[in-house]
Amino acid sequence: MPNTLRTYIVEDNATIRENLIGTLEELTRVNAIGHAEGEAVARDWLSANGPEWDLAIVDLFLKQGSGLGVLQGCAQRRSGQKVIVLTNYATPDIRKRCAQLGADAVFDKSNEIDALVEFCAQLSDASDAGSGPH
Score class of each variant (00 low, 15 high):
Gly73Glu: 05
Tyr89Glu: 15
Asn31Gln: 15
Ile113Trp: 02
Gln122Thr: 07
Val106Met: 10
Phe61Ile: 11
Ser127Val: 01
Ser124Gln: 08
Glu26Gly: 09
Asp114Pro: 03
Ala75Ile: 11
Arg97Gly: 04
Gly102Gln: 08
Ala129Glu: 07
Asn88Glu: 14
Trp53His: 07
Ala90Tyr: 05
Arg95Thr: 11
Lys63Tyr: 00
Ala32Thr: 10
Glu25Ala: 12
Asn88Leu: 15
Ser47Trp: 07
Leu116Cys: 02
Ser79Met: 10
Asn111Gln: 08
Val70Pro: 07
Asn88Cys: 12
Arg6Asp: 07
Thr91Ser: 15
Trp45Asp: 05
Asp44Cys: 04
Thr7Ser: 07
Arg17Pro: 01
Thr23Glu: 14
Ser131Asp: 06
Gly130Ile: 00
Leu55Cys: 05
Ala56Lys: 06
Ala14Asp: 11
Ser131Trp: 05
Gln76Trp: 07
Gly73Met: 06
Asp54His: 13
His35Met: 02
Pro51Ala: 14
Cys98Gln: 09
Val83Asn: 10
Ala75Tyr: 07
Arg29Ser: 14
Asp44Val: 06
Leu20Glu: 07
Ala115Gly: 07
Val106Lys: 09
Gly130Leu: 02
Arg77His: 10
Phe119Pro: 01
Glu39Ser: 00
Pro133Leu: 01
Thr15Asp: 12
Glu18Cys: 00
Leu116His: 03
Lys109Cys: 11
Ile113Pro: 03
Ser47Gln: 12
Gln122His: 10
Lys82Thr: 10
Leu27Lys: 15
Leu116Ile: 01
